[in-house]
């Protein structure tokens, strides 16, 4: 068929179309689709690469005999105390941060004056914008100094608990301080996520509760919190994932060692995997490097599992709603 123009005044249509037959448009589509698919596949490859290189570089350490490795220990024995420190610090952070974050989330979503809420939320988000190195130095210099009198008090009055066995470190740069710095760092992410779930509570549920004569707290207790519970749990899990992998804050606050102790305020503090890598990697070589990479692999697997669990909780509750 020819150019579909029968009107003498407006010839060949805008831009002069040709026939209906396949032309250049399909080529453009194929190229663009191919490029964007390629970008997606690249991500698959990168992640496969992360796993492959970490495993590949771990193998020399995993197969070497213990005498050749740092500290003359097997990789498992080397990583085990670090793993303990990692989990301990992250759990302290989680226990401190979650209740406060939920409180702030509720404050911003339901208690603060409407007009101020967005600005207040932005202030909390600013906490996430502070680089980790800054938190590290702040924790080592400012927070630890603040906490010294509290640690001394804890040692005197709660010393019967294994956590506060002491003697309290005069510098205050202890496991508990590191955990608190981590708590500050994961606070914004847990707050932001739980605030979002609280805000998503169906208006109908809230109004139903209020119409029954509930006070604001009762409305939250019976409408908002049940609705947001799984969201808060997964937010906490994502925060836990962050805390597990956080490096600099711990590396700067603690002068730790690879030990296992529950004393949170004493002089000997367990180091975390990430902090240990940051401290040891720049000067490492040979099998030490391989051992550190193996510990990184362990960290990768743990954070992967935690994050996976968090997503799973989200998707499960999402299907229910």
């Amino acid at each position: 068929m020819s150019t579909p123009t029968q009107q003498p005044t407006r010839d060949p249509g805008p831009g002069g179309r040709g026939t209906l037959a396949t032309g250049t448009t399909r080529k453009g589509d194929a190229v663009f689709k191919g490029t964007s698919t390629g970008a997606g596949v690249l991500i698959l490859l990168v992640l496969a690469g992360v796993a492959a290189f970490l495993i590949g570089q771990s193998i020399p350490a995993l197969t070497a005999s213990p005498e050749d490795l740092p500290e003359g220990q097997t990789v498992t024995a080397y990583v085990w105390p670090l793993l303990f420190g990692t989990v301990l610090a992250a759990i302290i952070a989680l226990l401190v941060a979650t209740p406060i974050a939920v409180g702030i989330g509720l404050f911003i979503s339901h208690f603060a004056p409407r007009r101020a809420a967005q600005t207040l939320g932005y202030l909390v988000d600013l906490l996430a914008a502070v680089p980790s190195i800054v938190y590290g130095i702040w924790g080592a210099v400012v927070l630890s100094a603040w906490l010294v009198p509290i640690y001394q008090w804890l040692e005197r009055n709660a010393g019967f608990l294994p956590f506060f066995d002491g003697p309290a470190l005069p510098s205050g740069r202890t496991m508990l301080t590191a955990g608190l710095v981590l708590a500050v760092m994961i606070l914004p992410i847990i707050t932001a996520l739980s605030r979002d779930v609280f805000l998503q509570t169906p208006r109908l549920h809230e109004e139903a509760a209020l119409a029954l004569g509930a006070t604001r707290w009762e409305m939250i207790r019976y409408a908002v919190i049940p609705y947001g519970r799984s969201g808060v749990v997964s937010a906490a899990m994502l925060g836990l994932g962050r805390a597990l992998g956080e490096t600099m804050a711990v590396a700067l606050v603690l002068s730790g060692a690879r030990i296992i102790t529950f004393d949170l305020i004493g002089a000997a503090n367990p180091l975390t995997i990430a902090a240990n890598i940051a401290l040891a990697f720049p000067e490492s070589s040979g099998l030490t490097t391989n051992t550190l990479i193996a510990s990184g692999l362990a960290l990768f697997i743990i954070t992967f599992l935690v994050n996976f669990a968090a997503r799973w909780i989200v998707s499960r509750s999402g299907a229910k709603a």
């Binding site: 690469g49 970490l54 992998g245 990479i293 990184g296 990768f300 954070t303 994050n307």
Partner: peptide, 17 residues
């Protein structure tokens, strides 16, 4: 999603490796 959760030090280790 998995990548979002990669600890930053692990990303560094990957490139180093």
């Amino acid at each position: 999603d998995v990548m979002t959760g990669i600890p930053s030090i692990v990303a560094g280790l990957f490139v180093a490796a």
